[in-house]
Design a protein around this nucleic acid. Structure first.
Lengths: 248, 248
DNA sequence: TCGCGCGTTTGATCTAAGTCAAAGATATGT
DNA sequence: ACATATCTTTGACTTAGATCAAACGCGCGA
């Protein structure tokens, strides 16, 4: 069913596009070597499910390229995205056997995985990996709580603006540029995925994007290519105070 | 401004009502002794703010008795509760200086605190505290994500039922009883606090509680004392599949 | 005991977002 | 180039929950 493909390991950890920032930013050379030995890549096509909620999950890993999402679904089909995994984001919980959420490749996706057992063993003898993982989890927790405000209290327009500003920020951060001047990026989500993340319907998402375009907050080339002429304006639309919304 | 009161330490850690399950469930005697030395209690009255978002936070701790809540507020006053802290829940983030959210005593509250610096030092030399903290943080993250589904996709009635079932479950867990038979507990939140947690208005909360009462899902004695004759029925109303919604 | 304040309930009305439906765009494969 | 499928936009209408407003109940101090 899953047409994923475990691909050969072509490079050392240090050559990895994101250099495993997520896990081994501060690892010693011999620790990196150990990580090498339990590392492998997996590739998924857009739309494929990486893991089903409830499945046994025998690896942890991080996104190298592409976008994955964590989703929950109720029996009647209502679904809520509970996490958006962009390059360098970490997936999996050391110490837990089963996946709690569906992990779905939203675009074509490459993940760098570590087999869980050896990874956990390594955590035990390498305290700063555990420490780093705690910090990452705290960041995720902050992001989740920030998103609770979006879901619980923001209007549809504010929700869209919030999502755009997260993606814009993450995109800018990846390219190590400041966020002054016009920001240009590709929106990696369908209207439906956006709706699932924002707790809206796709029609409402579409209408609000049209409205933001009409009001000059964003410009669109095609359906996905977005230009933000004034980032502060976008932040205002998101209802965030000027210091900037999302932590993670 | 804060009329909190650091109260004398009357007992050893082991005598503490909740025995610091949160932190030291698996500590060795000498480790417990160390925790003793950096421990102190703080008492707050209902309504008091424990910490303002942005304030420096020089302690971590856990709730001993009472309820605290984590809230976020937008400039225009809209507020969203992002966490409900019941006895034994942990507050504070090792490695972080500032509080990200307001922590408010929802009822009279006693907290057991540890000064942050020594606590962090202890984490470094006591790996299983760090490990335990990671597990707790992962639990909180699951709970936050579960709540995202509530906020994003559930109806008002389902939201109320979800909240009731969390409180009922936590209450039952505290008293170490199974969750068969009628469940009785006191709702520790005002309608307004419930509204802030659920992303609703207090009027809607009130109406839905009346409706659940009318439909026999719950019984009320006074405004706060709740009886749940059939917990599974409540779970259905919450829209959770039978296995049970909240992890944490 | 009364009056005040706070939390709560209930009612009438409004509106943002959902639902249902159809028609444009864009891409994909033959 | 054309047919098919997917994603997106837009329109008309409905509705769940918000808003505005009034009244209820209960504890508490004077």
């Amino acid at each position: 069913m899953l047409k994923d493909e475990t691909i050969a390991v072509p490079q050392k950890c240090g050559d990895c596009p994101i250099r495993h920032k997520a896990v081994c930013a501060r690892c010693e050379p011999q620790e990196l070597e150990q990580l090498e030995q339990i590392k492998y890549y997996r590739k998924f096509e857009a739309g494929q499910t990486v893991i089903w909620a409830g499945d046994r999950m025998d690896f942890v890993g991080s996104v190298v390229t592409g976008i994955a999402s964590l989703t929950q679904t109720m029996e009647d089909g209502r679904t809520q995205m509970v996490g958006l995994l962009l390059p360098s984001d970490f997936v999996g919980r050391p110490g837990r056997d089963g996946a709690v959420y569906n992990v779905v490749a939203t675009t074509d996706l490459v993940m760098c995985c570590f087999r869980k057992k050896p990874f956990e063993d390594m955590m035990v003898i390498t305290p700063h990996i555990a420490h780093r993982l705690l910090q990452m989890t705290l960041d995720e927790l902050d992001a989740a709580r920030e998103w609770m405000l979006v879901l619980g209290r923001k209007t549809a327009r504010e929700k869209i603006a919030s999502l755009l500003s997260i993606v814009a920020r993450r995109d800018a951060a990846l390219r190590q540029m400041g966020m002054a001047g016009p920001l240009v990026f590709d929106l990696p989500l369908t209207r439906e995925a956006m709706a699932d993340y924002l707790g809206l319907t796709l029609e409402t998402v579409s209408r609000q994007i049209s409205a933001l375009k009409r009001d000059g907050v964003i410009e669109l080339a095609g359906k996905r290519h977005v230009t933000v002429p004034d980032f502060l304006r976008l932040m205002e639309e998101a209802g965030d105070d000027s210091d900037g919304g999302m932590p993670a």
